[in-house]
Nucleic acid binder design. Structure first.
Lengths: 163, 163
DNA sequence: GTACATCGTTAGTCGCACTAACGCAACGGT
DNA sequence: ACCGTTGCGTTAGTGCGACTAACGATGTAC
């Protein structure tokens, strides 16, 4: 897409990315995450979903109904954004938003039968997408990759600021 | 920050992230990248820099002067965004933007002495930040991590759409 | 009962990837 | 010598995700 600098030059210096950048873990991470996100988003879009739909539905399935604030805590989605996500899910009849009789500030969110079906669908879609994402790695390498990722992530989520 | 669901409940179900999410490589990647980006951005902000500054300066240092379009190709920064980055760099006297006498459409961007000094500074800052980022991993594991990352990234940059 | 905290919601900020369009300059044919 | 195409730099704007601020309504504690 961007070859051939000048036709009179014998192509001595290819205009590639400097090695300094390709050696930085942070950059490789950013780049890969960009690709990964795009892959996942496009894949989920084909079944009319977004990744947050999955997060919320999975949280409801695995931990049962909860308030929006509780879902926020489980999924990491900010409660300001949760409202939009739940609107989308409610539009599609995947969850039910009912006022909590015991605490009228809260809404209790429940996954519906359709939601459960949809979640299963999403799970297989995501399986396929991850197969594509991790295609170059064999099972052992995938395990390793996940283990390294998780160790790094855990380290940085547990110790946010030792300053 | 979000403990203690209800004081009358014996805390049977902790409101943690569903395992379904923690098992997905895409999510771990996103999460870690978020942390990583934050770390890098904050670190660079302390020396009045952004990661794009580093990318451009490194590209200039390693491949020599070039047009904005060339820099765009080397760094991956869109040429629409390159404008702003170069403005910032020029404000700080880290680069010089001069019209190309041979092709009056182009600007030739050159790194300045200050720019070279700044780049060296950024390199050590980034070294420190990556030390922090990869702290939980020993050297062998860091190599592995980088290798896995790079293999995945290369695979997805070379085969964008086999559809 | 009054101060405080929590819940859902609205609005808005910031950074990043990306697109669209424009004016200008250079190049390629015929 | 003219014209269409292409590449360049610039401006403006989109979409998305993380995040903040503030508000009204409600619940809790003193």
């Amino acid at each position: 897409m961007s070859r051939a600098e000048a036709p009179d030059m014998p192509d001595d210096g290819p205009p590639k990315t400097p090695g300094r950048l390709r050696r930085r873990a942070s950059r490789q991470l950013s780049q890969l995450t960009m690709r990964s996100d795009r892959l996942i988003n496009e894949g989920l879009a084909q079944v009319d979903a977004r990744k947050w739909h999955y997060a919320v539905l999975a949280s409801l399935q695995d931990y049962g109904p909860g308030s929006q604030a509780a879902l926020s805590g489980r999924t990491g989605i900010y409660r300001s954004d949760m409202v939009g996500v739940l609107n989308e899910l409610a539009e599609r009849d995947l969850v039910e938003r009912a006022p909590d009789p015991g605490d009228r500030r809260r809404n209790i969110i429940t996954i519906s039968a359709r939601g459960r079906r949809h979640l299963r669908r999403l799970d297989t879609v995501l399986d396929d997408l991850h197969e594509e994402l991790l295609a170059p790695l064999n099972p052992a390498e995938r395990d390793q990759f996940m283990q390294l990722l998780t160790r790094l992530l855990d380290h940085h989520t547990r110790s946010p600021d030792p300053e």
